[in-house]
């Protein structure tokens, strides 16, 4: 594996000129993002801006149409399958739904990456799994099936699974969406704690402004396929840009319009009526 010398000041993830289209639709139109080591970086933006897509691009599950993504000095999309899989072992990803395997219980789910990638004896696997489950507070729930867990518990179990191989970085896909205030509080506390304890680099993709600004060191705001603001979270939170303000303050109308692009209402209504009339008398 051509391992480039890695400078520890170099950002862990370096995205340059990334373009990605889905059919005719432009998802990313040339974005540059740096994710520094050991930090929690939030990527924010309205729904439908392709935040999850960005994580899949970083994880090598999707290919960009242009641009590069370097993770730990390696170009993700130039790696062969074997090296990509090796790289993924050093990444954890927490999916929105948890993505736990539904036919095995919590313990087995967390043990799964260990059983797949290591030849550790059963006693060590058990210890490692229990430690990780303890970290997310689910040691007592190890015998439950994923269907018996609440949404927040499933996400925590998935988190335990994501960190069981001690990855370098972990990507959170909308960790706060659809959580009750208590589960949300647990996650808000858990993400920075894990980041510090395991010297992780975290990428949080979210549109929950309050929670995310609380835990993030860096924030990037994406809209319409471009990075419209990026920097330390304090700076973003106090930004005066209209774009950023609309998003951060949750204003219904602004640079992101309330109305989906359409022609003027009057024209649309009159045209409909005319079309109806002609249609009725062929």
């Amino acid at each position: 594996m051509p391992q480039q010398p890695v400078n520890s000041n170099e950002p862990l993830v370096k995205i340059r000129g990334l373009r990605f289209y889905r059919g005719e639709r432009v998802i990313f139109d040339g974005i540059d993002i740096d994710i520094p080591r050991g930090s929690i970086t939030a990527i924010m933006g309205p729904s439908g801006t392709g935040k999850t897509t960005l994580l899949k691009l970083i994880g090598g599950q999707l290919r960009p149409d242009a641009g590069t993504i370097h993770v730990d000095g390696q170009d993700v999309h130039k790696l062969n399958n074997k090296d990509l899989y090796k790289l993924r072992m050093r990444m954890g990803m927490l999916f929105q739904s948890g993505a736990l395997l539904t036919d095995i219980n919590v313990f087995e789910n967390v043990a799964y990456p260990l059983r797949e990638h290591t030849r550790l004896p059963e006693s060590i696997i058990r210890k490692l799994v229990l430690i990780k489950l303890e970290a997310v507070g689910l040691r007592g729930a190890r015998d439950l099936m994923p269907s018996e867990l609440s949404g927040g518990m499933a996400r925590r179990a998935a988190l335990a699974r994501a960190i069981v191989l001690d990855p370098k970085m972990i990507m959170y896909d909308e960790p706060f969406t659809g959580q009750d205030p208590i589960s949300m509080g647990v996650l808000v506390q858990l993400i920075p704690r894990l980041n510090k304890a395991s010297r992780l680099t975290s990428i949080v993709v979210s549109h929950d402004v309050q929670e995310t600004t609380n835990i993030a060191d860096m924030i990037y705001v994406i809209s319409n396929g471009k990075v419209i603001a990026g920097g330390p979270s304090k700076q973003i939170a106090n930004s005066t840009s209209f774009w950023v303000r609309q998003f951060m303050d949750g204003l219904p109308d602004g640079p992101v319009p309330f109305h989906f692009p359409a022609k003027p209402l009057e024209a649309d209504i009159l045209e409909k009526a005319a079309a109806h009339k002609t249609g009725a008398t062929p």
Partner: peptide, 12 residues
């Protein structure tokens, strides 16, 4: 339910 995607990200 993203289980296939999840496996992929677990390098499986």
């Amino acid at each position: 339910t993203e289980q296939l995607s999840g496996l992929e990200m677990m390098a499986v």
